[in-house]
Every structure is written in C-alpha cells, then in structure tokens.
C-alpha cells in the first residue's frame, strides 16, 4: 500500500468527502490559500474554491457558532480551530451550544459538525500553543472526541466524523503531521468512531495511550521486548465514546496496566480510564494501575524544559517496570 503523511491523510479525507457530498465544506483561520498552518488543508482551496474553503477572521466563537448554525440549516461543516488551546475562546459554542442542542431540543436538532484542531507539545510553542485539552471536551456529554495516532486512522476517522450526525472534536497532534504510513485509497474507507485498536499485541502488560503517545508507547514496547517484556499497546483512538470492551479484554489478558497521556495528570483522561478499570476489572489486576503523564505545569518554552515535562519512551518503560 502506498504511504502518505498524516497531514496528507487529513486533506485526502477532506477532499474525498467534499467530492462525495456538496454540503461538506471547510472553514477556519488560514485554511484557504495558505492551506492551514500545518498544511492539513493544502490544495483544497485551489480545487474547491473560496465558496467551499472559507478563510475566516480570527473569531473562534463565530467559527464554531456559524458552523453550528450552518449544520442546523443543512450543511456538514468542518471547522478548523488552529490550536486546541484556542478552543477555550470558542468554549460557549462548543460546550453549551454544539454539545447540547440535540439533547435540549428533544432530539430535533441534528448536528453533523466536525471541529478539527490539533494539540500537544511541538517545538518551542510554549504554554498557549502546546496543551493537550482532550479531557475538557471528553467531559461534555454530547461531544465525540477523536484523537488519531496514524495516517490511516486519521483518514478513516475523519471521514467517519464527517459522516457522523453528531458534533465531533477531532484532535490531531502537531508532531504527527509529517509521520508517514500506509493509507487505503478506497473512497469509503472509514474507521468507526468508538473503536480502539490494538497497535501491538503482548501478554505482560497493557499500555493504553492515544494520539502521539501511541508512537512513544510503541517505541517503548520495542525496547521492552529486547528485555523480554511483551507489552500490548492499546490505541484508544476515540475518547468519547470509549471502547471499554477492548480495554477490559486487554487488562484481563495482561493484568497490568500503564496509561500514558501527554496531558497533565490532574483531571486528565487517564484518571477516568483507571477508574473504569477499577470498577470493571479490579479482580483481574496484579498491580495498581500506573499513569505516565505530563507534569502539572504549563508547557515551558525551551527545549530541555519542555522535554522535562512530557512523557517519552523512557518514562513509559519506567512506568511499565514499576508495576511488573
């Protein structure tokens, strides 16, 4: 299978869905001629024009609110919020409007809407451009939260998100955009929202991760194998809805769990996963659930400083060894 970059998988998904369905359109800051600050919408403007690839002012609340209004009036918007940090500026529209409209109208409002954004620590982007805020969004009933780790998952999940009749927060990771991987070319290739994926099988320990931490976990698992430890890596891919079944099956198999996320620890989604494992598989555990997470700090600017506050394969290996 041909290999393409994660960001190319994103733009390929958008392109295919825009061709398939004329109501699908893209809006956001610098998504047009510029192609997005991470080039995830590159060439769409050239091919579909300004009427379907809309450069917006820097108005996050209006971007999400207008996307919602357009969804209520028959369109399938894909709105880009340039950094997940900026969802804070659109939070009324995300949390109070998009998430709740279907429920609070007694099911009348159907909201086929995707908010594409990206997060995580990059290269010296500092505290306001580096956060991992998935727990905020996963905490709001009514939103779906998707965080792909590979180009194939990115394409398949984005296509599924666009075809979904619910608001989806689709969080990419800025350090994954240039990663390459095999991606199917089939127009109807989709990955169902709410299905985790076992990225590597193993018997000794389950590592649960999402987004870029899947990549780091796989690297850690390769190293651990050299030491005779077989780690299973579960990529959640979707935080809400959560594939608890796949998590529990793996936990029951290995009896030891390390949860890895880049977001800071307190209030992080790892705590939710840990609690669900306690509630549903406590008797299967041979050790306490271990969390390997970002530290509880804003992300610093300088490289040695930011590297000191987010997990890496060494941290993950240490976490595994702690509970073996």
């Amino acid at each position: 299978m041909r290999e393409i970059k994660y960001r190319e998988a994103i733009s390929e998904a958008l392109r295919e869905e825009m061709i398939r369905d004329k109501t699908v359109f893209v809006m956001g800051e610098d998504v047009g001629q510029f192609g997005g600050v991470f080039q995830a919408t590159a060439t769409l403007y050239k091919d579909f024009g300004a009427s379907r690839v809309l450069d917006t002012p820097i108005s996050e609340a209006a971007i999400v609110g207008a996307a919602l209004g357009s969804a209520l009036a028959g369109l399938r918007p894909v709105a880009e919020i340039m950094f997940v940090d900026f969802t804070s500026i659109a939070m009324d529209q995300i949390a109070n409007q998009c998430a709740k409209f279907h429920f609070m109208t007694g099911g009348q409002a159907i909201i086929p809407l995707v908010i594409r954004t990206q997060g995580g620590v990059g290269i010296g982007d500092a505290a306001q451009h580096s956060q991992s805020l998935e727990a905020w969004h996963a905490h709001i009933p009514g939103l779906k939260v998707v965080m792909p780790s590979t180009p194939a998952d990115a394409k398949g999940l984005l296509k599924a998100s666009i075809r979904d009749d619910n608001p989806v927060i689709f969080i990419e990771h800025k350090m994954l955009y240039l990663n390459e991987g095999p991606v199917p070319e089939d127009d109807d290739y989709m990955i169902p929202i709410g299905k985790a994926d076992i990225k590597r099988e193993g018997e000794d320990v389950t590592i649960i991760a999402w987004s870029k931490m899947v990549v780091d976990s796989l690297e850690a698992a390769d190293d651990l194998e050299k030491e005779g430890i077989q780690a299973e890596v579960v990529d959640l891919r979707t935080l809400n809805p959560l594939d608890l079944e796949t998590i529990l099956t793996s936990v029951k198999k290995t009896s030891r769990v390390v949860i890895v996320h880049e977001a800071c620890k307190t209030g992080g989604f790892g705590g939710e996963v840990a609690a669900l494992i306690m509630e549903n598989a406590f008797d299967y555990l041979d050790a306490p659930v271990e969390r390997v997470t970002g530290l509880d700090t804003p992300i610093p600017y300088a490289e040695p400083l930011y590297r000191a506050v987010i997990p890496n394969p060494d941290w993950i290996k240490k976490g595994v060894k702690k509970i073996l």
């Binding site: 359109f25 609110g65 209004g69 357009s70 409007q97």
Partner: peptide, 25 residues
Amino acid sequence: ILGANGIVGGGVPIAVGAGLAIKYR
C-alpha cells in the same frame, strides 16, 4: 426556529451560520 438560547450572545453566531448556509445553498 433554531432555538431560544440560555446564553446571552450564544444564538447570534448560530443565526449567522444559518445565513451562511442560505448563501452556500
């Protein structure tokens, strides 16, 4: 009727989005 709204200002971008859909379609 795209809803009354409990947030002051919350409905304004939604109406504008409906306007966008009207023009788009």
